[in-house]
Amino acid sequence: MKLDKLARAGQSIQEAREHPSPWMIVWIALKNHKGALVGAGVFTFIVLAVLIGPLVYSIDPQLTDTAVRNQGMSWQHPLGTDNLGRDMLAQMLSGGRIALAVGFAAMLLSLGVGTAIGVVAGYYKRLDGPLMRLTDLFLALPLLPLLLVIIMLFRDTLRAAFGPERGIFFLIVLGIGITSWMQTARIVRGETLAIKEREFVLAATSMGTTGLHIITKHILPNILSPIMVSATLGIANAIITESTLSFLGLGFPPDFPTWGRLLFDGANFIGIEGATARVIWPGLAISLTVLSVNYIGDALRDAIDPRVRNK
């Protein structure tokens, strides 16, 4: 039954291939994958909630009110309050904004770096060796320890330069971006190598098209689908990494708490009446976001994988 569905998905994708639009592939992939459909719904809901939520739910997340400390769920504070009486829902919404902003920005950076390196390595034979050695070198780096070290070392400098919130934001985005581009680079290089040998590229080359033009007009549009799969994985990875850093106390400061930081702060109050939820809500938010993004990525990968598609 499921095979049947996959076959149908394959057929409609092949139709879509005739009018090549990567967004079409995304749509078809989501339409035929139940998990991905739910995932896309959940992800859209979370994104909308953190974007619109703070406008509608206008309690200041940093407003302390010691009269209502460590409270459970109530009408006044739907997700309860923390040990300083700050509203958890407001903190969750503003924390989600930062977490998702970091996720998107870091994903874009790593995608940009990875795609650039991958395309250049694939297209220019001379640069292939050195760039791939560089990729291998980065893959051999212990990434989490390295990220922790980078943040420890440059936190104060960047904070002084850009202010506390923006400084740490730049640092984390940069850190995640430059430590997660390698898989994208490898995939993009492989796809570029395959596309480069096709006739239309040969035709373009024989007409005297420059390398840059061929890359931007002929190669990149044709490898957009694997890049989009990388993008979903990149968001998931960036959100997890940011929350891990914050959880280890080396991410966002407590005055701009992200989900990871809220979890870190809440973890100290486990066992106190009414405070257990402080761990559950942010953790659930991180998990649901990553899970939904991973489901979307799974569906996209199935959609562009010829082995699955041709079944």
Binding site: G271, I280, G283, L291
Partner: peptide, 22 residues
């Protein structure tokens, strides 16, 4: 396995602490 792959270990760890030790 999708859940296990997506949920960060610090969250699973804390949930286990809440359930099994607290």
């Amino acid at each position: 396995s999708m859940v296990g792959f997506s949920v960060p270990t610090f969250f699973t760890g804390l949930v286990m602490i809440i359930i099994f030790s607290v």
